[in-house]
Computed example of a mutant assay.
Amino acid sequence: MGTVIAVARDEGHRFSKPLLPAIRLLAGLGVEGDAHCGETVKHRSRVAVDPTQPNLRQIHLIQAELFEELAANGFSLRPGDMGENVTTRGLDLLSLPAGTRLRLGPDALVSITGLRNPCVQIEAFQPGLLKAVLGRDAEGKLIRKAGIMGIVLAGGEVRPGDRIGVSLPALPHRALERV
C-alpha cells in the first residue's frame, strides 16, 4: 500500500498544476476540472494527430521518491510541478504492470494504462530535467521515470493522506509502455 501525499488539477494546459485539498475523479473521464478530463485525448499533440483517440491519460501519478532522487542531482521539485494529478509515497509506480488497479481513498478506482512520455516542456521547466527523468537499463532500454498514466474506472474524492490499495492484473503481467 502507498499513500496520497498531494493532489492537483488545472483547467489550463500549463506544465505545473496547483495543489488542492481534494480532487474529484469522474468514471471514464478523469479529474473533474482538469484540462485532460474527457473520453477522448486532450493532450494537444495527440489531439492534432487524431482527436477521436480514446483518452488513456485521464490521470497522471508520480511517486514523491522521484523528487528526492532528482534533488540529489540538483533539481528542486514539489508535488504538482511536473503536472501530475496525484503524488504518491511508498509505492513503486513504475514497476507496476499495465492493468494494475489502484484504489485511491474509499471510492476512486484507476486502471494503469502506461508510462508518461516526458516532453520538451520538462526541459523548459528546469534545464537538464528531461535527461534526468530518462535513463537506460542494463540492456540499453529507455527508462521513463516521469510517472504513470491511467483511466478512471470508478469516481470519488481523493485527498492527501488517503491510502492507495493495489490490485494486480491476472498473469502474465505486461510491462508498462509509453502512452
Rank of each mutant, 00 (worst) to 15 (best):
E69P: 01
G99Q: 10
I112W: 01
Q126D: 06
G135N: 13
L96F: 08
V110M: 08
G150S: 11
K145S: 12
N73E: 11
L77K: 00
I143D: 09
G128R: 09
G150Y: 01
A138G: 12
P127I: 04
R89Y: 08
L66F: 03
D81S: 08
A72S: 13
G83W: 01
T88I: 02
V110F: 00
A72M: 07
L94P: 04
L102T: 03
L130Y: 04
G114D: 06
L115C: 09
L96N: 11
D137A: 05
A64S: 11
G135H: 11
G74L: 05
L153R: 13
P97Y: 06
F125N: 08
G147Y: 00
K131Y: 09
A124L: 14
P79T: 07
Q126S: 05
V110W: 01
L93E: 06
G90A: 10
R116N: 12
N85H: 09
D107Y: 09
A72L: 10
R116L: 06
G147R: 04
A154C: 09
A124M: 15
G80H: 00
G150K: 06
E139D: 14
T100R: 12
R101N: 13
L129R: 02
G105M: 11
R116F: 02
G128F: 00
L134P: 01
L77Y: 01
G140D: 09
L142Q: 14
